[in-house]
Write a protein that binds this DNA or RNA. Structure first.
Length: 553
RNA sequence: CGGGGUGUAGCUUAGCCUGGUAGAGCGCCUGGUUUGGGACCAGGAGGUCGCGAGUUCGAAUCUCGCCGCCCCGACCA
């Protein structure tokens, strides 16, 4: 039991000017955090309590799936960082596992520092933040997949217990590399990722990874409609211009040919004129680094400037320079189409995918748009903004090779460990909970992560009878398993009620002289507008029952 | 790092264009009246106007530099 007057919950009537989104304003207004500088926040007593609850739930769910916690130093020898973006942690662990054997999953919950390019939205993107990270080491691929699935299960349980609605989506592995990964996303307009999903089939993927079912399974490539024919297009360098009069070639009948540089060598990507390349998908081509080519790089290879490019056999000036010509599957929908002639001011028509284009390899390179058919069930896909709160990667042996994480089997043979890597943004989760659960009056804490679960508002703290009842109610709630805060401040009722709504503890019990005269106290859930009058003799029992019911829900 | 803003009391801000005594609301302190949804009256404390140069008789205000912070873009949990 904690008295408001003894802790420090500096609530604010107005929100500071630099807070923009609801959760950031509420973090500050409810006295949970205070800003020290851009991306640096002090956790005030109530904020720290909520944070600890989230960490504890995380530990319970990690431990339940067999992971084990350790703590590593914040300061690392610089050599550890020379081989990769963030591998000091894994490397430290791997030295031990060499000898300890496979089948382990280590995690830690620590403060991380990132030189965040643009801190914003409070704890959502901070330069100092709290993260749980875990690394699993297994002897076989099957065991690694099992570890991965355990972590997915732990994450799902963790976010559910935090009262957070997340969707797990297939994700690009990005700089971490690895075989496959899932992100746990919280839908939110401030998110910096796009999530593509289908309510009907449950399909969900990060836009960087998402595919759609726009190509019918029974699609037959169009028969050639005539031989390739060059025609003059003076000054025409855009898809849109070719769609207009006098050409009238709709974008979905055009081939868009783009030039990229992959590890210093140019390569081509062909998509439909109406499609965009999803650059993250080019990672599947095996290049370490890739980017769009510059006009200066393009012309010597292709023989024309951007706007007149194509990949028809025999038209590319220096095909030997290319690392490959990669076409998105969807170009098969074009059939006989139009593309650049690799000659400024000219295009080619009657271009047939199979017959005419010099394609090395087909692949999935296009960006998915809302409304396209779901790859699983064909229903229209939706796209929403979301923020990432967790990420699980199956890494394979990429890093165990690099850092020599191996085990010795019973035949004295050495094998590389199959690894996984799993992160949760703990402090971000805290704010995501608030972002997802608030109203015009303040925060609406889910039971399990509320700084305290029950607030006893004593409207007349100078009155001995009211104070006595308040203490008894608090004790009853505590005995039933709740964390209890008692508002014993000498404030006017209006102030206390406003603060109660703002701070948002799930269950409010109000004790005051007026109610006591009637022989009642009041019980109110933060999620509801209804106030229940509870007769004094039953109050302790009813409060206890309410607490137990809420904890179970 | 590029573009756009902004910096005045603990918080929200007016004043800046057109140089001349730094003002309000909230919060805080004192006294009184109130007392179940951010009360009212009276009094009070609290400011290197981000920092440093410059122009000027005189700078919160104009000029230059630096710093902080916020917003829009590419990286990350």
């Amino acid at each position: 039991m904690k008295y408001w007057s003894q802790t420090f919950i500096p609530t604010l009537k107005e929100s500071p000017a630099d807070a923009e989104i609801a959760s950031h304003k509420l973090l500050l207004r409810a006295g949970l955090v205070r800003k020290l500088g851009a991306g640096f926040y002090t956790y005030m007593p109530a904020g720290l309590r909520a944070l600890r609850k989230i960490m504890d739930i995380c530990r319970e769910e990690m431990d339940r799936e067999g992971a084990t916690e350790l703590a590593m130093p914040h300061v690392h020898p610089v050599e550890n960082w020379q081989d990769g973006p963030r591998w000091a942690a894994a490397r430290e662990i791997m030295y031990r596992v060499d000898h300890a054997g496979a089948g382990k999953n280590f995690y830690q919950i620590t403060t991380k520092f990132r030189n965040e390019i643009r801190p914003r939205y409070g704890l959502m993107r901070a330069r100092e933040f709290i993260m749980k990270d875990a690394y699993s080491f297994d002897a076989t691929d099957d065991a690694a997949i099992e570890s991965y699935n355990k972590m997915k299960r732990a994450y799902t349980a963790f976010f559910t217990r935090c009262g957070l609605k997340t969707i797990s989506v297939e994700a690009d592995t990005g700089v971490m590399g690895g075989s496959f990964s899932h992100e746990f996303m919280v839908p939110a307009p401030i998110g910096d990722d796009d999530v593509v999903y289908c309510d009907a089939s449950g399909y969900a993927a990060n836009r960087e990874k998402a595919t759609s079912g726009i190509i019918p399974a029974d699609l037959k490539d169009a028969a050639p409609a005539g031989s390739v024919e060059e025609f003059p297009t003076p000054g025409i360098v855009t898809i849109a211009a070719l769609e207009a009069a006098p050409y009238h070639v709709s974008a979905d009948k055009q081939f868009k040919t783009l030039v990229f540089m992959g590890d210093g060598k140019p390569f081509l990507v062909i998509v439909r004129g109406c499609d965009d390349v999803e650059e993250a998908k080019l990672g599947s081509l095996g290049f370490q680094l890739w980017r769009a080519a510059t006009p200066e790089e393009i012309e010597p290879v292709m023989g024309a400037k951007p706007g007149s490019l194509g990949a028809v056999k025999g038209t590319i000036k220096n095909p030997g320079a290319l690392a490959g010509i990669f076409a998105d599957h969807a170009v098969r929908l074009v059939g006989n189409g139009t593309t650049g002639a690799n000659k400024d001011g000219f295009h080619l028509r009657h271009v047939n995918v199979g017959r005419d284009l010099a394609i090395t390899q087909f692949g999935d390179f296009r960006r998915v748009h809302a409304g396209e058919p779901c790859p699983k069930c064909g229903q229209p896909l939706k796209i929403d903004r979301a923020i990432e709160v967790g990420h699980v990667f199956k890494l394979g042996t990429k890093y165990s090779e690099k850092f020599g994480a191996a085990y010795t089997d019973d035949k004295k043979q050495s094998h590389l460990m199959v690894m996984g890597c799993y992160g949760i943004g703990i402090s971000r989760t805290l704010q995501a909970v608030i972002e997802q659960s608030n109203d015009a009056d303040g925060i609406i804490w889910p039971w399990n992560v509320a700084p305290w679960q029950v607030l006893v508002v004593n409207l007349d703290p100078q009155d001995a009878a009211a104070t006595d009842v308040a203490k008894k109610l608090a004790a009853a709630a505590e005995a039933a398993g709740a964390d209890v805060l008692v508002d014993d401040r000498a404030e006017r009722p209006g102030v206390k009620f406003k603060d109660a709504d703002l701070v948002g503890l799930p269950l409010r019990l109000t004790v005051g002289g007026k109610g006591l005269k009637e022989g009642i106290i009041e019980l109110k859930w933060r999620t509801s507008k209804d106030v229940t009058k509870v007769p004094l003799p039953d109050a302790e029992k009813i409060v206890g029952d309410a607490v137990r019911a809420a904890a179970k829900a």
